[in-house]
Simulated assay, not measured.
Amino acid sequence: MIRFLLTRVVLLAIGLLIASALIFFTLRVLPGDVAQIIAGTQGSPEQVAAIREQLGLNVPLPLQYLDWVGGIVRGDLGTSLVTGTPVVEELTEKATVTVPLALLALVIALLVSVPFGVLAALRRTTATGTAFAVTAQALAAVPVVWAGMILVIVFAVWLGWLPPQGFPRDGWEDPGDAIRSLLLPALTIGVVEGAVLLRFVRSATLEAIGQDYVRTAAASGLTRRRALLTHGLPNVALSVVSVLALQVAGLLVGAVIVEQLFTLPGVGRLLVTNVGNRDLEMVQGAVFVFTAIVLVIGALIDVLARALDPRQREAT
Protein backbone atom coordinates (compact mmCIF):
# COMPACT_ATOMS: atom_id res chain seq x y z
CA MET A 1 0.00 0.00 0.00
CA ILE A 2 2.85 2.38 0.83
CA ARG A 3 4.42 1.72 -2.56
CA PHE A 4 1.09 2.43 -4.24
CA LEU A 5 0.70 5.71 -2.32
CA LEU A 6 4.20 6.85 -3.25
CA THR A 7 3.59 5.98 -6.90
CA ARG A 8 0.29 7.86 -6.85
CA VAL A 9 1.92 10.94 -5.30
CA VAL A 10 4.66 10.94 -7.95
CA LEU A 11 2.09 10.59 -10.75
CA LEU A 12 0.05 13.41 -9.21
CA ALA A 13 3.08 15.69 -9.12
CA ILE A 14 3.92 14.89 -12.74
CA GLY A 15 0.31 15.51 -13.75
CA LEU A 16 0.27 18.88 -12.01
CA LEU A 17 3.55 19.87 -13.68
CA ILE A 18 2.28 18.91 -17.15
CA ALA A 19 -1.02 20.71 -16.49
CA SER A 20 0.77 23.86 -15.38
CA ALA A 21 2.87 23.93 -18.55
CA LEU A 22 -0.16 23.38 -20.80
CA ILE A 23 -2.14 26.08 -19.01
CA PHE A 24 0.69 28.64 -19.07
CA PHE A 25 1.79 28.30 -22.68
CA THR A 26 -1.72 27.77 -24.11
CA LEU A 27 -2.92 31.04 -22.58
CA ARG A 28 -0.01 32.88 -24.22
CA VAL A 29 -1.38 31.87 -27.63
CA LEU A 30 -4.60 33.83 -27.05
CA PRO A 31 -4.81 37.11 -28.97
CA GLY A 32 -4.71 40.44 -27.17
CA ASP A 33 -2.29 42.36 -24.97
CA VAL A 34 -3.05 43.12 -21.33
CA ALA A 35 -0.64 46.07 -21.48
CA GLN A 36 -2.71 47.60 -24.29
CA ILE A 37 -5.90 46.99 -22.30
CA ILE A 38 -4.46 48.74 -19.24
CA ALA A 39 -3.15 51.65 -21.32
CA GLY A 40 -6.50 52.06 -23.06
CA THR A 41 -7.30 52.87 -26.64
CA GLN A 42 -5.50 56.22 -26.33
CA GLY A 43 -2.30 54.70 -24.96
CA SER A 44 0.86 55.43 -26.91
CA PRO A 45 3.30 52.70 -27.92
CA GLU A 46 5.73 54.12 -25.32
CA GLN A 47 3.13 53.77 -22.57
CA VAL A 48 2.30 50.22 -23.64
CA ALA A 49 6.00 49.32 -23.67
CA ALA A 50 6.46 50.84 -20.20
CA ILE A 51 3.53 48.83 -18.83
CA ARG A 52 4.90 45.64 -20.37
CA GLU A 53 8.23 46.34 -18.72
CA GLN A 54 6.58 47.07 -15.38
CA LEU A 55 4.54 43.84 -15.47
CA GLY A 56 7.50 41.72 -16.53
CA LEU A 57 5.90 40.76 -19.83
CA ASN A 58 9.17 41.33 -21.70
CA VAL A 59 10.85 38.47 -19.85
CA PRO A 60 11.21 35.30 -22.00
CA LEU A 61 8.27 32.93 -21.58
CA PRO A 62 10.31 29.99 -20.16
CA LEU A 63 11.60 32.27 -17.39
CA GLN A 64 8.09 33.57 -16.72
CA TYR A 65 6.87 29.97 -16.47
CA LEU A 66 9.63 28.92 -14.07
CA ASP A 67 8.91 31.96 -11.91
CA TRP A 68 5.20 31.08 -11.84
CA VAL A 69 5.84 27.41 -10.95
CA GLY A 70 8.20 28.50 -8.20
CA GLY A 71 5.45 30.70 -6.83
CA ILE A 72 2.99 27.78 -6.89
CA VAL A 73 5.39 25.72 -4.80
CA ARG A 74 5.47 28.57 -2.26
CA GLY A 75 1.68 28.91 -2.33
CA ASP A 76 1.79 32.09 -4.42
CA LEU A 77 -0.21 32.10 -7.66
CA GLY A 78 0.93 35.58 -8.63
CA THR A 79 -0.73 38.97 -8.73
CA SER A 80 -3.53 40.17 -10.98
CA LEU A 81 -2.13 42.18 -13.88
CA VAL A 82 -5.23 44.39 -13.92
CA THR A 83 -6.17 44.99 -10.28
CA GLY A 84 -2.89 44.25 -8.50
CA THR A 85 -4.71 41.90 -6.10
CA PRO A 86 -2.97 38.63 -5.13
CA VAL A 87 -4.54 35.78 -7.08
CA VAL A 88 -4.80 33.55 -3.99
CA GLU A 89 -6.66 36.26 -2.10
CA GLU A 90 -9.12 36.81 -4.95
CA LEU A 91 -9.72 33.09 -5.48
CA THR A 92 -10.23 32.52 -1.76
CA GLU A 93 -12.90 35.21 -1.65
CA LYS A 94 -14.73 33.86 -4.70
CA ALA A 95 -14.45 30.28 -3.45
CA THR A 96 -16.88 31.12 -0.64
CA VAL A 97 -19.54 30.99 -3.36
CA THR A 98 -18.18 28.32 -5.71
CA VAL A 99 -17.26 25.67 -3.12
CA PRO A 100 -20.69 25.62 -1.39
CA LEU A 101 -22.34 25.65 -4.82
CA ALA A 102 -20.30 22.63 -5.98
CA LEU A 103 -20.85 20.71 -2.71
CA LEU A 104 -24.59 21.37 -2.76
CA ALA A 105 -24.76 20.30 -6.41
CA LEU A 106 -22.83 17.10 -5.57
CA VAL A 107 -25.25 16.26 -2.76
CA ILE A 108 -28.21 16.80 -5.10
CA ALA A 109 -26.56 14.67 -7.79
CA LEU A 110 -26.04 11.80 -5.33
CA LEU A 111 -29.60 12.09 -3.99
CA VAL A 112 -30.90 11.90 -7.55
CA SER A 113 -28.63 9.17 -8.86
CA VAL A 114 -28.12 6.58 -6.12
CA PRO A 115 -31.68 5.74 -4.98
CA PHE A 116 -33.26 6.14 -8.41
CA GLY A 117 -30.40 4.31 -10.14
CA VAL A 118 -30.79 1.31 -7.83
CA LEU A 119 -34.58 1.42 -8.22
CA ALA A 120 -34.29 1.62 -12.02
CA ALA A 121 -32.15 -1.53 -11.96
CA LEU A 122 -34.43 -3.44 -9.57
CA ARG A 123 -37.47 -2.60 -11.69
CA ARG A 124 -35.76 -2.76 -15.06
CA THR A 125 -38.53 -4.88 -16.59
CA THR A 126 -41.34 -2.59 -15.40
CA ALA A 127 -42.68 0.68 -16.74
CA THR A 128 -41.20 2.49 -13.71
CA GLY A 129 -37.68 1.26 -14.41
CA THR A 130 -37.98 2.11 -18.08
CA ALA A 131 -39.27 5.59 -17.23
CA PHE A 132 -36.30 6.22 -14.92
CA ALA A 133 -33.81 5.06 -17.55
CA VAL A 134 -35.38 7.13 -20.35
CA THR A 135 -35.67 10.22 -18.14
CA ALA A 136 -32.03 9.95 -17.09
CA GLN A 137 -30.95 9.58 -20.71
CA ALA A 138 -32.92 12.69 -21.66
CA LEU A 139 -31.73 14.82 -18.72
CA ALA A 140 -28.10 13.85 -19.31
CA ALA A 141 -28.37 15.31 -22.82
CA VAL A 142 -29.85 18.63 -21.66
CA PRO A 143 -27.35 21.54 -21.76
CA VAL A 144 -26.78 23.14 -18.36
CA VAL A 145 -27.93 26.54 -19.66
CA TRP A 146 -31.29 25.13 -20.81
CA ALA A 147 -31.78 23.30 -17.53
CA GLY A 148 -31.08 26.51 -15.62
CA MET A 149 -33.53 28.52 -17.70
CA ILE A 150 -36.28 25.92 -17.24
CA LEU A 151 -35.73 25.80 -13.48
CA VAL A 152 -35.82 29.60 -13.27
CA ILE A 153 -39.12 29.71 -15.16
CA VAL A 154 -40.67 27.04 -12.93
CA PHE A 155 -39.32 27.84 -9.44
CA ALA A 156 -38.64 31.58 -9.70
CA VAL A 157 -41.17 32.93 -12.22
CA TRP A 158 -44.18 30.62 -11.93
CA LEU A 159 -43.94 29.49 -8.29
CA GLY A 160 -41.87 32.35 -6.88
CA TRP A 161 -40.17 30.07 -4.37
CA LEU A 162 -36.54 30.97 -5.09
CA PRO A 163 -34.65 34.06 -6.30
CA PRO A 164 -33.89 33.91 -10.04
CA GLN A 165 -30.30 35.16 -9.76
CA GLY A 166 -27.75 37.03 -7.67
CA PHE A 167 -26.10 36.50 -4.29
CA PRO A 168 -26.59 38.49 -1.04
CA ARG A 169 -24.30 41.51 -0.80
CA ASP A 170 -23.45 40.64 2.80
CA GLY A 171 -22.44 37.14 1.73
CA TRP A 172 -22.87 34.46 4.37
CA GLU A 173 -23.90 36.81 7.17
CA ASP A 174 -27.42 35.47 6.59
CA PRO A 175 -26.88 31.77 5.75
CA GLY A 176 -30.55 31.28 4.90
CA ASP A 177 -30.54 33.89 2.14
CA ALA A 178 -27.19 32.64 0.85
CA ILE A 179 -28.39 29.04 0.61
CA ARG A 180 -31.65 30.09 -1.06
CA SER A 181 -29.66 31.97 -3.71
CA LEU A 182 -27.58 28.84 -4.39
CA LEU A 183 -30.45 26.34 -4.57
CA LEU A 184 -31.46 26.98 -8.18
CA PRO A 185 -27.87 27.00 -9.49
CA ALA A 186 -27.10 23.84 -7.51
CA LEU A 187 -30.25 22.15 -8.80
CA THR A 188 -29.25 23.10 -12.34
CA ILE A 189 -25.89 21.36 -12.02
CA GLY A 190 -27.01 18.57 -9.70
CA VAL A 191 -29.95 17.35 -11.78
CA VAL A 192 -27.91 17.15 -15.00
CA GLU A 193 -24.87 15.54 -13.35
CA GLY A 194 -27.15 13.31 -11.30
CA ALA A 195 -28.77 12.00 -14.47
CA VAL A 196 -25.33 11.10 -15.83
CA LEU A 197 -24.36 9.36 -12.59
CA LEU A 198 -27.73 7.57 -12.42
CA ARG A 199 -26.84 5.67 -15.57
CA PHE A 200 -23.59 4.45 -13.97
CA VAL A 201 -25.43 3.44 -10.79
CA ARG A 202 -28.05 1.55 -12.80
CA SER A 203 -25.40 -0.30 -14.82
CA ALA A 204 -23.36 -1.16 -11.71
CA THR A 205 -26.49 -2.40 -9.91
CA LEU A 206 -27.51 -4.57 -12.87
CA GLU A 207 -24.01 -6.06 -12.92
CA ALA A 208 -24.17 -6.73 -9.17
CA ILE A 209 -27.56 -8.43 -9.50
CA GLY A 210 -26.04 -10.90 -11.95
CA GLN A 211 -23.15 -11.88 -9.67
CA ASP A 212 -23.02 -15.38 -8.19
CA TYR A 213 -22.84 -14.20 -4.59
CA VAL A 214 -26.07 -12.19 -4.95
CA ARG A 215 -27.87 -15.11 -6.58
CA THR A 216 -26.56 -17.43 -3.85
CA ALA A 217 -27.81 -15.08 -1.14
CA ALA A 218 -31.20 -14.94 -2.83
CA ALA A 219 -31.29 -18.75 -3.08
CA SER A 220 -30.54 -18.94 0.65
CA GLY A 221 -33.86 -17.32 1.47
CA LEU A 222 -33.22 -13.58 1.10
CA THR A 223 -35.37 -11.54 -1.25
CA ARG A 224 -33.63 -10.22 -4.33
CA ARG A 225 -33.77 -6.70 -2.90
CA ARG A 226 -32.36 -7.78 0.48
CA ALA A 227 -29.61 -9.81 -1.20
CA LEU A 228 -28.63 -6.81 -3.30
CA LEU A 229 -28.68 -4.39 -0.37
CA THR A 230 -26.67 -6.74 1.84
CA HIS A 231 -24.11 -8.14 -0.60
CA GLY A 232 -24.26 -6.15 -3.81
CA LEU A 233 -24.30 -2.49 -2.77
CA PRO A 234 -20.63 -2.43 -1.61
CA ASN A 235 -19.59 -3.22 -5.19
CA VAL A 236 -22.06 -0.65 -6.52
CA ALA A 237 -20.52 1.91 -4.16
CA LEU A 238 -17.06 1.12 -5.56
CA SER A 239 -18.30 1.76 -9.09
CA VAL A 240 -19.88 5.06 -8.04
CA VAL A 241 -16.70 6.15 -6.26
CA SER A 242 -14.67 5.37 -9.39
CA VAL A 243 -16.62 7.84 -11.52
CA LEU A 244 -16.81 10.61 -8.93
CA ALA A 245 -13.60 12.23 -10.21
CA LEU A 246 -15.23 12.67 -13.62
CA GLN A 247 -18.33 14.04 -11.89
CA VAL A 248 -16.24 16.60 -10.01
CA ALA A 249 -14.84 17.83 -13.32
CA GLY A 250 -18.40 18.14 -14.64
CA LEU A 251 -19.45 20.01 -11.52
CA LEU A 252 -16.65 22.54 -11.90
CA VAL A 253 -17.38 23.11 -15.59
CA GLY A 254 -21.04 23.44 -14.74
CA ALA A 255 -20.19 25.98 -12.03
CA VAL A 256 -18.41 28.19 -14.57
CA ILE A 257 -21.50 28.25 -16.79
CA VAL A 258 -24.06 28.48 -14.00
CA GLU A 259 -22.32 31.37 -12.23
CA GLN A 260 -22.61 33.38 -15.41
CA LEU A 261 -26.26 32.41 -15.86
CA PHE A 262 -27.24 33.25 -12.27
CA THR A 263 -24.77 36.19 -11.86
CA LEU A 264 -23.04 34.57 -8.90
CA PRO A 265 -19.77 36.21 -7.77
CA GLY A 266 -17.79 32.96 -7.80
CA VAL A 267 -14.59 31.65 -9.30
CA GLY A 268 -16.28 30.72 -12.58
CA ARG A 269 -17.55 34.22 -13.21
CA LEU A 270 -14.17 35.63 -12.18
CA LEU A 271 -12.50 33.34 -14.71
CA VAL A 272 -14.75 34.37 -17.60
CA THR A 273 -14.39 38.08 -16.77
CA ASN A 274 -10.61 37.95 -16.64
CA VAL A 275 -10.33 36.02 -19.90
CA GLY A 276 -11.88 39.07 -21.54
CA ASN A 277 -9.51 41.37 -19.66
CA ARG A 278 -6.49 39.26 -20.69
CA ASP A 279 -5.49 39.04 -17.03
CA LEU A 280 -3.33 35.98 -17.59
CA GLU A 281 -2.11 35.71 -14.00
CA MET A 282 -5.66 35.48 -12.67
CA VAL A 283 -6.87 33.16 -15.43
CA GLN A 284 -3.98 30.72 -15.20
CA GLY A 285 -4.25 30.68 -11.41
CA ALA A 286 -7.99 29.87 -11.50
CA VAL A 287 -7.61 27.20 -14.21
CA PHE A 288 -4.68 25.60 -12.39
CA VAL A 289 -6.68 25.43 -9.15
CA PHE A 290 -9.61 23.81 -10.98
CA THR A 291 -7.24 21.31 -12.61
CA ALA A 292 -5.45 20.58 -9.34
CA ILE A 293 -8.76 19.91 -7.57
CA VAL A 294 -9.77 17.37 -10.23
CA LEU A 295 -6.37 15.63 -10.18
CA VAL A 296 -6.16 15.52 -6.38
CA ILE A 297 -9.71 14.18 -6.02
CA GLY A 298 -8.96 11.59 -8.70
CA ALA A 299 -5.90 10.47 -6.75
CA LEU A 300 -7.85 10.32 -3.48
CA ILE A 301 -10.60 8.28 -5.14
CA ASP A 302 -8.01 5.82 -6.49
CA VAL A 303 -6.64 5.40 -2.97
CA LEU A 304 -10.14 5.04 -1.50
CA ALA A 305 -11.16 2.48 -4.11
CA ARG A 306 -8.04 0.46 -3.40
CA ALA A 307 -8.67 0.60 0.33
CA LEU A 308 -12.29 -0.53 -0.07
CA ASP A 309 -11.67 -3.26 -2.66
CA PRO A 310 -9.54 -6.18 -1.42
CA ARG A 311 -9.21 -7.47 -5.00
CA GLN A 312 -7.14 -4.42 -5.95
CA ARG A 313 -4.90 -4.87 -2.93
CA GLU A 314 -4.34 -8.51 -3.76
CA ALA A 315 -3.52 -7.74 -7.41
CA THR A 316 -0.14 -6.25 -6.43
Rank of each mutant, 00 (worst) to 15 (best):
V258A: 03
K94A: 15
A19I: 04
A305K: 08
L122Q: 04
R224F: 10
D177N: 13
Q284Y: 07
G176W: 13
V107K: 01
R199F: 00
L103W: 02
E173M: 12
L222F: 10
V87R: 06
V154G: 05
S203M: 06
V303S: 01
D67R: 15
T135S: 12
A208Y: 04
M282G: 09
P185D: 00
V275N: 08
I18A: 14
A286W: 02
F24R: 04
P100S: 05
L101A: 02
L182H: 03
L91F: 00
I18W: 11
T188S: 07
R225L: 11
Q64W: 00
I179R: 01
W146D: 04
T98G: 04
Q64F: 01
Q42A: 14
S220A: 14
I2Y: 13
T291W: 08
L228M: 07
G285Q: 06
L81A: 13
R311E: 04
W172A: 05
I51V: 12
G160I: 09
L111R: 07
L111H: 06
V73G: 10
P60T: 07
G266M: 05
L110M: 13
P115W: 05
S242M: 11
G190R: 04
D174C: 06
L238M: 06
V97E: 10
R74N: 03
F4T: 09
L122Y: 02
I297L: 14
V287G: 06
T188K: 03
A217R: 08
R306A: 14
S239K: 01
T85F: 13
T125F: 13
A255N: 02
R180P: 03
A237F: 12
A140F: 10
P310Q: 10
V9D: 08
N277R: 15
V152M: 13
R169C: 01
G117C: 03
Q64N: 02
L106T: 13
A140H: 03
R313G: 12
M282S: 07
Q312I: 15
V88G: 03
A95I: 07
R52H: 08
L300A: 12
P100D: 05
Q211M: 15
G232R: 04
P163K: 00
L246A: 14
L119S: 08
L271M: 12
T273I: 12
S113I: 00
V236A: 06
V59M: 11
V145I: 15
L55Y: 02
I14E: 12
F25I: 02
A218T: 15
L110F: 11
V236P: 00
L11G: 11
T263F: 15
V240H: 00
